[in-house]
């Protein structure tokens, strides 16, 4: 029906996309501007104000060391968003490139790339993440590296499938016939054709990346304390669940809402790109 309207216009016409975009914008702004906001120091301990419930002074209460939970949730957003966005970005670029090479060149490159990707996909993502972190040791950059390794095979699969489909269409054959160099075929013919599909899964997988990151720091092998992350806040909150539920609930709500927003945007884009899904 609305085929003549551009994808972007249709996206902005959907209320769920708007809610998602607004939510993501709010979270990103809060995280980016955290140092400028009138928040208490997320690391400052107050021996006399531990496990205080929500009040006017600290809206979401304090934790077992008297640190302000709201401030820690907002600073925690910095870490979570940084890690998940950077690693998804890296995995997207790397995975697309490898997948396209495998789907386009075939032969040995295809066998090698796809065997390794399939085998890595045989591990549930969190379990692969745990194994990799066992080798790398904890730290922000290492979590990024780990998530990139975990997410790349998924992009390889998608890009491989799309590249194979695009490859058989004649415009690639025509481009090959005049023997355009590979990087040119890639830039002009393949990537524009598979871009929307890759972008949709990338946005949906940001949620997965946030979950895995939070799980790793919950287990205690991700970003190490005292740097606040949503995962390690929930972990320490679990011990105080009966007496100070806000410690675990505040970062839980933050993770949940962030993933909801990304899913709303991803689903809406997919509905525009592929209406058969009926969102």
């Amino acid at each position: 029906m609305s085929g003549r309207r551009s994808g972007g216009a249709r996206l902005l016409a959907s209320p769920s996309a708007l809610i998602g975009l607004a939510g993501i914008a709010a979270i990103v702004l809060l995280a980016a501007l955290a140092p400028l906001l009138p928040l208490s120091d997320p690391l400052a301990q107050q021996p006399y104000g531990t496990l205080a419930g929500p009040s006017l002074a600290s809206w979401l209460g304090t934790d077992n060391q008297g640190r302000d939970v709201l401030s820690r949730v907002i600073f925690g957003a910095q870490t979570s968003l940084l890690i998940s966005l950077v690693s998804i970005g890296l995995a997207m670029v790397l995975g697309t490139l490898l997948g396209v090479v495998a789907g386009y060149y075939r032969g040995y490159a295809e066998v090698a790339i796809m065997r390794v990707a399939d085998s890595l996909m045989a591990f549930p993502s969190l379990i692969l993440g745990v194994a990799i972190m066992a080798i790398l040791g904890s730290g922000t950059e290492k979590v990024i590296l780990c998530l990139t390794i975990v997410m790349t095979p998924r992009f390889v699969r998608i890009a491989y499938g799309s590249a194979m489909a695009v490859r058989v269409k004649e415009y690639i054959e025509a481009a090959q016939a005049v023997s355009a160099p590979f990087h040119r075929i890639l830039a002009v013919h393949i990537v524009p054709n598979i871009f929307s599909e890759i972008l949709v899964v990338a946005i949906l997988w940001i949620g997965t990346a946030i979950q895995v990151e939070a799980s790793l720091s919950f287990i205690g092998i991700g970003v190490s304390p005292p740097t606040p992350t949503w995962g390690n806040m929930i972990k320490s909150g679990l011990d105080y669940l009966p007496i100070a539920p806000w410690m675990a609930l505040a970062p839980s709500a933050a993770i949940f809402l962030t993933i909801v927003f990304f899913n709303l945007v991803g689903d809406s884009i997919r509905d525009v790109v592929d209406p058969r899904h009926y969102g």
Partner: peptide, 8 residues
């Protein structure tokens, strides 16, 4: 359900 991590 799709957005909530299992541990949450």
């Amino acid at each position: 359900g799709l957005s909530i991590p299992s541990f949450v």
